[in-house]
């Protein structure tokens, strides 16, 4: 951090703990990542040291191993998980607390989850999708035919807070992702009034060419440089 006053609009926080300090009990948190890639692991670690409880977490899968999201499950901080894949063998902590009846689960198709979050960020209250027709995913949902093909009404899925990961940010919160680490992060950035982005590098405004920005700064409220990077795939 510079010694003089930060430039107008500087969104960089000192550390992960400061960035998540005001998350309240009962928050709906959109959590980026897919298979250990693009997971804001330092922000997750800060949540483990944070008192907020009764959280709803929206994320691709039910965590893996004993780290990251699994720590929050163990701590009993998560009331409900909304995800696309709940019972991977690596998500044994989730399985244990789910089987003990200590957490609620809503499992939805991956593309439907991505689009529900996208819709929330794009001001679309609901949409129809053919995915899930004739399956358990259709239970309790309004269905309608379009051009002879059935589709399900799905509602936007906004969060109170998005906790995401990007490769690089400038101080204004413009984000760049790397490899397949974008995954849910860009749609989540737009779908919550408070978006906190963990990054591997912070640069000055202008250092990311405008046409190279993946997530425009308007969606990002806080940026924090990740202290450690340990969660990786195949765990």
């Amino acid at each position: 951090m510079p010694e003089e006053l930060p430039p107008l609009g500087d969104k960089v926080y000192l550390d992960s703990a400061a960035a998540v300090a005001d998350i309240p009990d009962g928050a709906v948190i959109l959590l980026g990542g897919f298979g250990g890639v693009g997971v804001p692991e330092n922000l997750l670690a800060a949540m483990a040291d944070h008192p907020a409880r009764e959280l709803t977490i929206v994320t691709n899968h039910a965590g893996f191993g004993e780290r990251g999201l699994a720590v929050l499950f163990r701590q009993g901080k998560v009331r409900k998980l909304i995800c696309t894949y709940a019972f991977h063998k690596s998500a044994f902590v989730f399985r244990e607390i789910y089987m003990a009846g200590k957490i609620e689960l809503e499992q939805i198709p991956q593309g439907t989850m991505a689009e529900r979050i996208r819709a929330a960020g794009a001001g679309i209250p609901a949409f129809y999708t053919p995915t899930g027709v004739g399956t358990q995913a259709a239970e309790g949902k309004e269905s309608r035919g379009f051009g002879g093909r059935e589709a399900l009404l799905e509602h936007a899925l906004p969060g109170d807070i998005a906790i995401i990961k990007a490769h690089k940010a400038d101080r204004l919160g413009n984000l760049v992702y790397r490899g397949t680490a974008a995954n849910f992060n860009p749609v989540m950035a737009a779908a919550a009034p408070l978006t906190i982005a963990e990054v591997e590098a912070v640069v000055e405004p202008g250092e990311i060419a405008p046409e190279a920005v993946h997530t425009p700064s308007i969606y990002v409220n806080r940026v924090v440089l990740g202290e450690n990077l340990e969660l990786r795939s195949e765990a």
């Binding site: 696309t84 089987m99 198709p109 991956q110 995915t131």
Partner: peptide
């Protein structure tokens, strides 16, 4: 039975 598998991208892929 409870606690088996996951939907993931399968429904979207099979449909789309």
């Amino acid at each position: 039975g409870a606690g088996k598998g996951g939907i993931g991208g399968a429904m979207d892929l099979a449909t789309g």
